[in-house]
Simulated assay, not measured.
Amino acid sequence: MKRKSMEGSVCPVARSLDIIGDWWSLLIVRDALNGLTRFGEFQKNLGIAKNMLTQRLKHLVEQGILTVRPATDGSAWNEYVLTEKGRALQTVLVALAQWGGDYLFDSHEKCSVLVDDVHQQPLRKLQLQAQDGRTLAPDEVIAQRPELV
């Protein structure tokens, strides 16, 4: 079934999901943020079919989320490296991880926790903040359509 493109939508969420809305793409970005760069590393870690991985990597490169470069060890292989656009998705993945940790695990279940690399302490929960620094509740945020701006 072919998906409807959200390319022309005025909603940034819809446009974002058009690019990174399938789970494989976000898991590839997650693994790239964790240092994986090679096709075989992604395939082994994710357990994804090679044809599916090929398709997703190609799409992420076309969208400027990953770039391809020759392997740093001088071998004939290529590496997939996050661009600035790709690295910016880390905040999205942190939000998903924090939400998942809060709502998708029973109290006795263990899950991975994101920590800061220097002090090995869990990250502070992401919050919605106004320009002036006030913390906002979800019902204090609205989407303003372009024609109203």
Score class of each variant (00 low, 15 high):
Met1Gly: 12
Arg3Glu: 12
Lys4Leu: 08
Ser5Lys: 11
Glu7Ile: 05
Gly8Trp: 06
Val13Gly: 02
Ile19Phe: 09
Ser25Thr: 14
Asn34Phe: 00
Asn34Ser: 00
Gly35His: 01
Gly35Ala: 01
Gly35Pro: 02
Gly35Cys: 01
Thr37Gln: 04
Arg38Lys: 10
Glu41Ala: 03
Gln43Pro: 05
Gln43Ile: 00
Asn45Ala: 14
Leu46Thr: 06
Gly47His: 04
Lys50Pro: 10
Met52Arg: 09
Thr54Phe: 11
Thr54Trp: 05
Glu62Gly: 13
Val68Glu: 14
Asp73Phe: 15
Gly74Gln: 10
Ser75Thr: 10
Tyr80Asn: 03
Lys85Tyr: 06
Ala88Met: 06
Ala88His: 09
Leu89His: 14
Thr91Ala: 13
Ala95Val: 11
Ala97Trp: 07
Ala97Glu: 13
Trp99Ser: 05
Asp102Pro: 07
Tyr103Phe: 12
Ser107Glu: 04
His108Gly: 10
Cys111Thr: 04
Ser112Asn: 00
Ser112Cys: 00
Asp117Thr: 01
Asp117Met: 00
Val118Asn: 02
His119Ile: 07
Pro122Phe: 07
Pro122Met: 05
Leu126Gln: 10
Leu126Pro: 07
Gln127His: 07
Gln127Ala: 12
Leu128Phe: 15
Ala130Met: 08
Gln131Trp: 07
Gly133Phe: 09
Thr135Met: 11
Ala137Gly: 09
Ala137Phe: 11
Pro138Thr: 06
Glu140Gln: 11
Val141Pro: 12
Val141Trp: 11
Ile142Ser: 13
Ala143Phe: 13
Gln144Leu: 15
Gln144Ser: 15
Glu147Ile: 11
Val149Ile: 14
